[in-house]
Design a protein around this nucleic acid. Structure first.
Lengths: 239, 239
DNA sequence: ATCACATTAATTGTATACAATTATACAAGT
DNA sequence: ACTTGTATAATTGTATACAATTAATGTGAT
């Protein structure tokens, strides 16, 4: 009876935690949990991931933990040494810089393909998003803007009609999510970002693939420049 | 005793199979096995992957099978529907085309970074590879050429000193490995390819990053064009 | 004959048990 | 004091057992 209660409590607790994350299966829940912990810095590079500890912490058995770890290994977020264990690898600042450079190329490609292949409905959706962006930029509502930014790029990923490219960009975005969140929180950057998005939208609408690619690549490059000026600022604040 | 013999046989059999693949752990062996089967067309898109069947086929339990499947899922080679099963997704011809387009950009980036960061030792290695390429091009030894091609690009991946970029390019290469193998088997293409490699090497040696990027991007683009003409030819042969 | 429903089988999801490997601690010999 | 060896513990690797879900099979009512 005691054991039974215990397990019910554990399950309820797990379910509560899962509310905020994917919950189709335990391994996906564990995967998201650990990935977020690494990306948010709760698990730091060099930390050892011990299966039994994680299993207890999350209230699940080792099987889903192992499945999740194998995925994290493939993503490059952890390094696994057979029979010894896995340690957090994490993403360094240089990794993030590299990802932005790569993204500027691939997002450019996505914009190019989108300009060639997008249908009327998606075009309409883009237009709406841009209009909403204008609205929330005026209101300085940064949370909404971040969400709209995600939607804007998401529509383009779908429009470019390439499973492979979408897959890669989705992954890359996750890696820099934390960095991205802070990026739009400066009013001036937000205004600039809005104008960039509008230009990109217009280029796509005009089916000007080359222009869309150029503008998108610039857009991403500016985002990383902006990030750098932000971190420099906060470095100064530390002194 | 019978059981004991049985298990020894199974293990020996498994070990023999593993000789040709990675064998650090069962899940990596299973992962490589299934991935190769998909990439070589033995498992076709739409095929269902049943854990127990695979477990029996490979002489292992379901646990390593599941770990491998989770990785394949992340790679996009299979699609998993919770509680129902996984089906092979595979790579279509369009996927391969897309990958080549993406590769031409990313390999270009790698060449650019390599030109900026490569050290003397790696430069020397590149030079050797190019010399060997010339030799084997004359000899029409396509297997050696394919290997050298892999080495050439590998040295550049390392030289560009970017964990992220190297990781992405390694993955992309695996997807198109089958396509790549056939690519160099035409004497004229092999000669052209050699000249392209030499030009890229020279640009890198001269630290001309922009030129290296341009040449490399062109090199990959030509490879996909060549592939297309090959498949068209074999289509004609069918008639 | 066909649909609805119950029953069984097949398959996935999860937990646990056991084996193999590696790390740790401690004692004996030099 | 410092290695060396050995026993013990901790941890990973693998297999199996059990639970939950979904697919299939068959039976009876209309």
């Amino acid at each position: 009876m005691d054991d039974f209660e215990e397990s019910r409590v554990a399950k309820a607790k797990r379910f509560a935690k899962m509310q905020s994350l994917e919950r189709y299966s335990l391994h996906s829940y564990v995967f998201n949990y650990i990935r977020d912990a690494i990306l948010n810095g709760r698990y730091k590079p060099g930390d050892a991931l011990v299966e039994t500890k994680l299993a207890e912490e999350l209230g699940v058995s080792r099987t889903p933990i192992r499945e999740a770890i194998r995925q994290l290994e493939l993503e490059g977020l952890v390094i696994s040494i057979p029979n010894k264990g896995v340690v957090v690898s994490g993403v360094s600042q240089k990794d993030i810089d590299d990802i932005y450079t790569i993204r500027s190329m691939l997002e450019g490609l996505a914009a190019r393909w989108a300009a060639q292949r997008i249908d009327e409905q998606a075009l309409k959706e883009l237009e709406e998003i841009v209009e909403l962006m204008e609205y929330y930029t005026r209101k300085n509502d940064f949370d909404q803007l971040t969400q709209l930014d995600t939607r804007f790029h998401g529509v383009i990923y779908d429009a470019c009609d390439s499973k492979v490219l979408k897959h890669m960009l989705d992954n890359l975005l996750r890696y820099v999510e934390r960095a991205r969140r802070g990026s739009l929180k400066v009013p001036m950057r937000a205004r600039l970002s809005f104008h960039e998005h509008r230009s990109i939208f217009e280029a796509i609408m005009k089916r000007d693939a080359a222009e869309a690619e150029r503008l998108m690549a610039e857009h991403i490059s500016r985002a990383i420049l902006n990030l750098h000026s932000l971190t420099e600022q906060s470095e100064e604040e530390k002194d």
